[in-house]
């Protein structure tokens, strides 16, 4: 059970994109033994869809655009809401008290693609499944620096933060710094050039490089990772996550084709390769793809 001081500290570390209500629920449910908190969060997101009916309409519209809904648009829409709640809980490791539990709840596939790549690599993540794939990589023993914000890690147990969060990356958390992404990307480049690996989201903030058209909506892919690829020539390995029962499976996929000199051609090559990969992921795990159904608002609000 987390101490009250930890709770007070965690309250101050609410991510800007999480409402106060959701963050309160995260911290309250975290006090329940595993997996009650995560189940509670999952159920609450389904219930919330009937209160915030805009969410339900979004989920139903998105489910209706999928070719294989097993005859039930409603079933897919509600499964999507339930997954979304589970992912929010998982981002904060609700109910997870120690590293051993975390190890049991995560698995990594596709490591052979990593061994084929020499030097530092760019792991490219997506908001199309359970969050924190970089944590799965670390739990599996891989050294990787997260290039991004604090997210919900303020609610992680102290033991897990100490073991799996680096001081280096926490220097680049403050969102109020207008140039924080310049600092993060510059640091990422420096790490890649010294043979270290980084993990960055493809569909995060910033100006898009291109959009990948998918059933139900297009995924906007940012330019940060692509700028790193161009600047360093580091291999880019897409990483997608899904749930098997209560276990988060992160899969490392084939590296994208190596960069070519013509930037327009390079962008198109990346767009096509990612398009194939993401379309397959969406077909296999439609109820995981919450970011397509619930696009982030202008102020970044999603949960």
């Amino acid at each position: 059970m987390p101490a009250l001081k930890d709770l007070a500290d965690a309250w101050k570390l609410r991510p800007a994109s999480y409402s106060r209500a959701v963050w309160t629920l995260v911290l309250v449910l975290d006090r329940l033994p595993w997996p009650l908190g995560e189940e509670g969060m999952s159920a609450s997101f389904v219930a919330r869809a009937f209160v915030r009916t805009e969410r339900l309409r979004q989920a139903l519209a998105w489910a209706g655009a999928q070719s294989e809904t097993n005859g039930s648009r409603w079933r897919l829409a509600l499964a999507l809401c339930a997954r979304h709640g589970r992912f929010v809980a998982r981002s904060a490791l609700v109910g997870v008290r120690n590293a051993e539990t975390l190890r049991r709840l995560s698995a990594l596939l596709g490591e052979e693609h990593l061994s084929a790549a020499a030097g530092g690599v760019i792991f490219l993540g997506f908001h199309l499944g359970p969050p924190g794939a970089y944590l799965v990589l670390r739990v599996a023993g891989h050294s990787v620096t997260w290039i991004g914000g604090r997210g919900a890690t303020g609610a992680w147990p102290r033991e897990i933060r100490r073991r799996y969060q680096t001081i280096l990356e926490s220097q680049f958390f403050p969102e109020e710094d207008r140039h924080v992404w310049v600092r993060r990307l510059h640091q990422a480049r420096r790490l890649l050039e010294t043979g270290e690996s980084v993990f960055i989201s493809a569909d995060g903030e910033g100006e898009p490089a291109f959009a990948v058209p998918l059933a139900g909506g297009a995924l906007s892919v940012g330019r940060g990772w692509w700028a790193l690829r161009r600047a360093t020539g580091a291999p880019v390995l897409p990483v997608l996550s899904h749930m098997r029962g209560r276990t988060q499976i992160a899969t490392i996929h084939h590296a994208l084709p190596p960069p070519v000199a013509d930037p327009d051609l390079d962008l198109e090559t990346c767009r096509q390769a990612l398009g194939r990969l993401l379309a397959d992921h969406l077909r296999r795990f439609p109820d995981h793809c919450y970011s397509l159904a619930f696009p982030a608002t202008a102020n970044g609000d999603r949960p």
């Binding site: 510059h186 910033g206 330019r223």
Partner: peptide, 11 residues
């Protein structure tokens, strides 16, 4: 300039 442009400028 956005953050990526600034990175390119700095590099």
């Amino acid at each position: 300039l956005d953050s990526v442009h600034l990175l390119e400028t700095i590099i």
